[in-house]
Structures are given as C-alpha cells and as structure tokens.
Design a protein around this nucleic acid. Structure first.
Lengths: 236, 236
DNA sequence: TGTAAACTGCGAACGGCGTTAACTTCGCAT
DNA sequence: ATGCGAAGTTAACGCCGTTCGCAGTTTACA
C-alpha cells in the first residue's frame, strides 16, 4: 500500500485541501473554485477530478476538515481544564467555540450557514457528516459528564411536550445509545440552541445593528445558562 | 411624472422583482441569475442593466422587498391582537416571525444568512438597509410598548457590563432616539438573540441532527422568555 | 412640427465557472 | 519488456455577470 504513487496521491489530496482552505480564508467561500485551486497549484481544473468527483465533494471534504480542526481545538482546550472543574470545562468549551467561530467566519459560514447548493447533497456515507457528528458529540459528551457528575434538576417525561418526547427518545436511543432522562436531552438542546444561535448571529453580523462587540451579551448568556445546569458562572 | 415611459418602467421593475422572487422560491437563491430572470421575461440579460446597476443591486432590491413583506405580515398579525394584550402581541409576533421564516427558507437565507458576496456591499443610502431597519423597529417598538405599559425589572446601569454600556447608550441615542433605561435595551437584545438565533438554527436545518419538529423547543423558549419581561406565556 | 436627446432593447463578445471527452505521458506490476 | 492504469493535458460545451456598439422608440424642446 505504501507504493510511491499512493504517497504522491495522498500528498496531492492534502495539497488540494490546504489550497482550498487558504483560498477560503483569504478570498471567501465563493472564490473556492476548482479553477482557482488548480491555478494556485500549477495544475488545470480537470485534473482535480482525479481526486474529487465534483466541486461539491471537494467542498464537503473541506467541511469535514474544518469540523475536525474545530473539534480538535475544543478538545485541546478542554484538556487544559482540571478534570473535576465542570464549570470551567463548560465555560472554556463555549468560549472556545465562539472564539474559533469569530476567528474563522468564512469557515463558520461553510459549516453552520444556510445549506449551500452542491454541499448539501450527500452521496452514501458522508465524510463531512461523520466529522460533524464528532463535533456534536464533543459538546454532548461534556453535557453528559456534567449531569452524571452532578445531576441538575430536569423535567420528568410527563412534563415534556408530547410532540417533543418521541423525538428526544428517538435521538437518545438511536443516535446516543445511552441511558438517561429525556429531560437531560431537552436541557442540552435548550443550551445548545442558545449557544450556537447567539454565535451564529454574531458571526454573520446580525447584531451589528446595535453592537460592535457582542462578547458581553455572550457572557450574559453563559451566566444565565450556567445555573440552569448546576454550574457556577466564572469570569474569563 | 405620470409619463407613459415612467409607467412602463415602473411596471418592468415590478415584473423583474416578481420574476426574481418566483425563481428564488421555486429554484433557490443560486438560480436567481440575470439571465434566468431575463429568459423568463422574454428579454436578454443586458437589458436588465437598464433597471439595476448589477446583479448584486437587484438582489439587494429583492432583499428590501422581502423585508417589507415580512414586516407587513408581522404588523398585520399584531393588529389582530387586542391593544391591551401585550402577552398576546409578543407571542403572536414571535410565532409569526418563526412561521414566515419556516415557510420561506430561501428568502430567510437571503435576509438572515451569512452575508453574501455581491449583496453585502452597499452603495450610498441603501434601500434594503432601510427595509431592514423597518423590520427591526417592529420588534423594538413592541418591546418599548411592553416596557412602558408594564415596566419589568431591568438592571441599573452600574450592573451592566462596562464594555456593553457605551454600545447600548450609542444605540439608544443614535438609532432609537428615545429615553429609557439601558437595561431595557439589554433585555431586548437578550430576547431578540434567543428568538432569531433559535429560528436561524431551525430554518437552516441545524437542529435536524436531533429534531424533526423544533416547535416545542421554540415554545419552551417563549415560555422562558415571557416571565423575564413581565408577560405570561400563553399556548398557541 | 421638426429634431436632438434620452430611453430601452438587441446581439456579440470577454473572461470565469463546472464539467466532459479525447489524448498523452509516465509509474509500476507481471 | 510490455502493457495497464493513473495523472495530467488541451479543447470544448453551456452556464454566468458584464461591457460595448447599435438600432428603434419615446420624450422634450426650439
């Protein structure tokens, strides 16, 4: 398997990814064209079809890489927090997510923006989708640790919206495959929606009508969420 | 002003807008091309330049129209609520915003998605921007009425983050031009971020990893927000 | 009323895009 | 050494936004 051609091929794939990434950062998502990538590499566009079936698949691969990078940074940041400091872990994960998003708005748009034509359609088992799952699991895992270590009050099943209940159950049993009250998942979703919702608005500039620096609002949100899940808010 | 040519011109502008809108709805944002619009109208693409300086400006005009439509629907819905029922007004406005967004995902992406190249750059005083302001004011106005009619507790200035304080003050004095505690604006932003943040995630499909129908989560959010601003949550 | 200006459309063209097809070149296994 | 398949090329097709020059029509004014 270690044949010379295989190594060359792997190197080329890597160079394509890196080139695409650089163009994305420097010139924005719409500049990530096959011809631009090829040009930058001293190749021609059709040659890229030896490595990716289409422009969309190349972008999807890029999305996967970005998810992996983001996940890596989150996990690295989490590791730097003492194992028993769950409040610290939650704060760090949330703030790190926001930081990465603000530092990489182009990339963020690709990962969490409106689904883009040519990126959305998956063929069979998707690489990018798996990376996204990894990312999601990072937060979910943290949340589960949180609850297992120091259970916070969650609503019993019969107080959860009957439309929501089966959805939560399906998600728990099919995707998560863990045993825990559905109220925990409801609480997780509530928190995650606030977190990512807020970050999305900020990254896309939809708070600029009133704010030049939305960090205080983000911290305010953290301070409001923390006690809901049995944590104590700690300043940066 | 009522010259024959002026009337024809106005009619053409209107037809262009409607055609663009129809293509947007039926085939998605990336299908709204000058050539497609012209084709559908029995014209050629260069002719459209007699009416809009560029593709981007045409899209910006479309954005303005969409904002106006959305604002109109919100105001109409608000009018159907008794004047003194502020809880009802808040619920209706929030739910109507979500409904419109879910019913018009393509349009929503154009209005509230990641800033699109060619749409973002404005030249001089912008039509779309003014329409967006109108939309924003609809919610802000409701919020002010809310507070004036039945003031809810808001943090005093010296409890607001010192980084946030001047931003809120600038927004109140420069944009709003009304007299009210800065804590009210902070509270408004907190609510608006939750509202639009949640709707954005849902419309863009970023809750589908766990939910097929996010309405219960939206209602849960409303139920949590309502008491924070002196309202009582009412079911749909 | 005659005429010049302004407006509105057209076709052709430029460069860029994704993608396909035919063709060459070169690495590598038998 | 030969033959096969991988990796690259060029040429082409049909899209796209945009510009230019030209025609026909409407308007405004002397």
């Amino acid at each position: 398997m270690g044949t010379r051609r295989d190594r060359l091929r792997a190197a080329t794939v890597k160079e394509i990814s890196e080139t695409a990434r650089r163009i994305l950062v420097e010139e924005g998502p719409e500049a990530v064209t096959l011809r631009a990538i090829a040009r930058e590499m001293g190749m021609t566009a059709p040659a890229l079809y030896r490595y990716f079936d289409s422009h969309g698949e190349l972008l999807r691969h890029l999305v996967g890489d970005l998810f992996t990078e983001l996940t890596g940074e989150l996990r690295a940041a989490l590791k730097r927090v003492p194992h028993d400091d769950m409040s610290g872990k939650f704060m760090v994960a949330s703030r790190q997510f926001r930081s990465w998003s603000l530092a990489h708005p182009r990339e963020y748009a690709l990962l969490f923006g409106a689904p883009v034509r040519g990126v959305g359609e998956q063929e069979q088992v998707d690489f990018a989708e798996e990376c996204a799952r990894q990312f999601g699991w990072t937060f979910m895992e943290l949340f589960l640790q949180l609850w297992k270590k120091k259970p916070f009050p969650v609503p019993p099943d019969d107080e959860i919206d009957p439309v929501l209940l089966p959805q939560l159950r399906a998600y728990r049993d099919t995707v998560l495959g863990v045993e825990l009250p559905l109220g925990v998942i409801q609480q997780f979703l509530k928190c995650w929606i606030r977190l990512q919702g807020g970050v999305s608005l900020e990254v896309f500039g939809h708070l600029e009508f009133a704010l030049t620096d939305a960090e205080p609002m983000f911290e305010l949100m953290l301070a409001e969420i923390a006690p809901q899940i049995g944590l104590t808010y700690t300043r940066r």
